[in-house]
Each structure stands twice: as structure tokens, then as C-alpha cells.
Amino acid sequence: MSEATLDQTTTTNAQPKAARFAVFGTSFLLGLVLPVTAGLLYEAAFRAGLVQARLLPPPSRVFTTLWKLAQSGELATHVLATTVRVGMGFGLGALVGMLLGALTGASRNARRLLDPTLQALRAIPSLAWVPLFILWLGIFESSKIALIAVGVFFPVYLGVMAAIANVDRKIVEVGRVFRLSRLALVRRVLLPAILPDFIIAIRSGLGLGFMFVVAAEIMGASEGLGYLLVDGQQLGKPDQILAAIIAFAVLGKIGDWLIVVLTKPFLTWQDTHQRGA
């Protein structure tokens, strides 16, 4: 039939690896232009004595502090503490959000029963739970993980519920025609159909997880990147605050990137306008 069109699709698909990497490299470098230029300008202004750097230290000083923290092993301790908290809170929140979202998305009765309550709970600013969590779970790890889990839960729950409820009836009918059991329908049709939306839900969940770990650590912790922030404020060390912020940015980016990279092999079938870009 239309062999020509097909060949075209395959060629754009099988773009040489090197070429694709070059494209990736260019867009990566382009993204760096703005922050690097701003940093260099500020550094230059500082060296020329044009700015007072007491409150906003120049990049060189921030990176020196970061390097010192790394060398003393302090940075690793804080990063580890934060990562463990986010990991546990994210795991818990995402798991519960996924299960409840799948339940309310697939069953109208479950949605009628559960969703109004969950939506009401969602309307509460999550930080309002902090005093209660501290009363219930103490000031140590449990209350922090609970807070992060709450933050992660809602985007994952909403995303999964909406995705399952929006799966195309026509696709579900194919499963019915082949007489799939309810479980097989979930496994062979619903789950693969929602995978792209599920990944987006997980990514926004992880983003909120990082937001809430900062809140939890600012409110009382003896280690963690959030602790570095508070410590820097109390001791008047803006370079330490900025170092912690940079560490947060890197950590969050790595987490998000891991989700994207680990799930990519499962999404090669997608027919989107930016495929391969």
C-alpha cells in the first residue's frame, strides 16, 4: 500500500544515534546559556567590587562551600537523610495513591464512596497537618515521612483516577470482545493505556515530595538538606543556603530523570507529535 510513507517513518525513527546525541547536546547547552551567563556576570561584578556580596555570595564562594561540605562528608549525610525521607514518603504516597486512584477510576461505586472524602481532604493545605502529625507520630522520621506521603498522594491519586476513567470505551470494548476477565482487562488494557498519564502523575508526585521534605526538615531536623537551609539562616551563611538549594535542584532533577529514563522503554509505542525529539 503506502510503502513510501512507511519507509519515511522508519527512517525518522532510526535516526543515527550520534545525530540524536548531537541534537540532545545542543539543546542541553542552549539551556545552560542563561544561568551560566548570569553567574559569570555576577562573579565579574563581584570581582570588580561593584556589589556587596554579604547577602548574595558569588558563584565561586557558593561552589567552594559546596565542595567543602562534600569533602567533609557532611553533604553526603544530608543528601542521604533527605533522599531516604523522600524515597519512603514518595513510595508510600505513590503506592496508596495508585491503588485508590485505580479503584475509584475503575468502579463508579468506589468513586461515589471515596472520592468526596478524598477531595475534601485535598482541600486542606497539607502543611496544616504538621502539628497533628507531630502529636501523633512524634518529631522524628515518622511524622516527616507521613507529611511527604500526603503531598505525593494527591497528584498520584488524581492522575490515576482521571486516567483510568478516561480510557477510550472503544479500546475497552476490544477487551470485552475477547472476553477478558476483569483482572485481565486491567492488566492487558487499562494499565498499558494509562501508563503515559501514570508517569506524569508519578513525576508531579515526586516534585511535591521534594517540596514537602523541605517543609518537614525546616520544621525540625538534625540532618538533611532542609536542615542545612535553616542552619545557614541562623548562622548567617547565605553561601550554605545556596549550596543546599543547588543540592536540592540536582537531587530533584536526578529523581525526575530516573523516572523518565526507566519508563522510556515502555513508551516507544506512543504516537505523539514530539516523538523522537
Binding site: K170, E173, V174, V177, P192, L195, W269, Q270
Partner: peptide
């Protein structure tokens, strides 16, 4: 068996 107006292939297979 049934064939619909649209092919209704599962895009992830």
C-alpha cells in the same frame, strides 16, 4: 468475532 468501523488496534502492542 467483530470488526469495528475503526481498526481499534491497541497502540502499545
Amino acid at each position: 468475532g467483530i470488526v469495528f468501523q475503526e481498526a481499534r488496534l491497541l497502540p502499545w502492542l
